[in-house]
Amino acid sequence: MLAVLTGCVAEPAPDVLIGLRNPTVAFGGTSRFDRDRFAGAWQTVACLGSCTRSEEYRAASGGVYLRRTREAETAYEISAPGVLREMGGEDTLVVMWVDEGFRTAAIGDAEGRWAAILNRSRKPAGDRIRAATEILDFNGWDVSKLRVVK
């Protein structure tokens, strides 16, 4: 009997590195995502990791969706609602939430390196910021590290 039990000893679970986002929590894009309504200028009002102060999205020809920051313009394809995969690269952006008026959004990269709460202006409504923060938390992000971007 002891020999049988000895063979059943479980291996210790591998350590999971939890940085800005817990990788064991599944997350995905919002079904509310609409490429035309999401297009336009956004201001980063809160951030985890390294974020830009502002960014702009626009639809281009051939199904290409462009993200422009001060540093670069990157082409993406929309592979699922709210999921943007870099064309010719490894980056995947996930729009986890956007309010009904497309004024505030929660977005992050699939690798867990950064996440941001975006707003159409620098003066967001508190209820939408709370909602975006709750969505980030629900999707495994460490919202205790969220910082305001001015």
Rank of each mutant, 00 (worst) to 15 (best):
A105G: 07
P23V: 10
D15H: 00
T44G: 05
I18C: 05
T133Q: 13
R67Y: 04
A116V: 07
F27A: 05
G126I: 13
R85S: 11
V83C: 00
A110Y: 03
P124A: 09
G89S: 13
L136K: 02
W141L: 12
A72E: 01
V4P: 00
G101Q: 13
R103H: 11
S79R: 02
L146G: 08
A115T: 05
V98W: 02
L136E: 03
G40P: 12
V25Y: 06
A110F: 00
G28T: 14
G19F: 05
K150A: 14
A26T: 08
S50E: 08
A3C: 04
R130A: 15
A3P: 05
E55M: 12
A80R: 00
A59F: 01
F38P: 02
V149C: 04
D109F: 03
A59V: 07
S61G: 12
R85W: 02
A3K: 12
R35F: 08
A125F: 15
G63D: 09
A116W: 03
D99Y: 10
F27E: 07
G49N: 06
K123I: 08
A3I: 13
R130N: 14
A59H: 00
R122H: 15
A10T: 04
R113M: 09
E55L: 14
V25H: 04
M87Y: 03
D36W: 11
G126W: 05
T74M: 04
R85G: 05
C51E: 00
Y65W: 03
R122Y: 11
F33E: 13
R113F: 09
G82L: 05
D109A: 02
D91E: 14
F138G: 10
G89C: 10
T52L: 01
R147M: 05
V148H: 13
Q43G: 07
K123E: 11
C47H: 11
G89M: 11
L84I: 01
V143A: 02
D127L: 15
E11H: 13
G126A: 14
F27Y: 07
F38T: 11
R147F: 07
L93A: 01
G112D: 00
I117M: 08
R147I: 08
R32V: 09
F138M: 13
L93Y: 03
E90K: 13
R68W: 03
K145G: 01
G112S: 01
E90H: 10
T69C: 07
V9P: 15
N119S: 15
L5H: 06
R128N: 09
D91S: 15
R32K: 07
G89F: 06
W141A: 10
E77S: 15
A26K: 04
S54C: 05
R67W: 03
V149E: 06
L136Y: 00
E100N: 12
G62W: 14
R21Y: 02
R68A: 09
R147W: 01
G28P: 08
P12R: 11
R21G: 11
Y65H: 01
V64D: 03
V16L: 12
F33T: 10
R58M: 10
E73Q: 09
S54R: 10
W42P: 12
S54I: 05
D109S: 09
G19D: 10
A26C: 02
P81E: 06
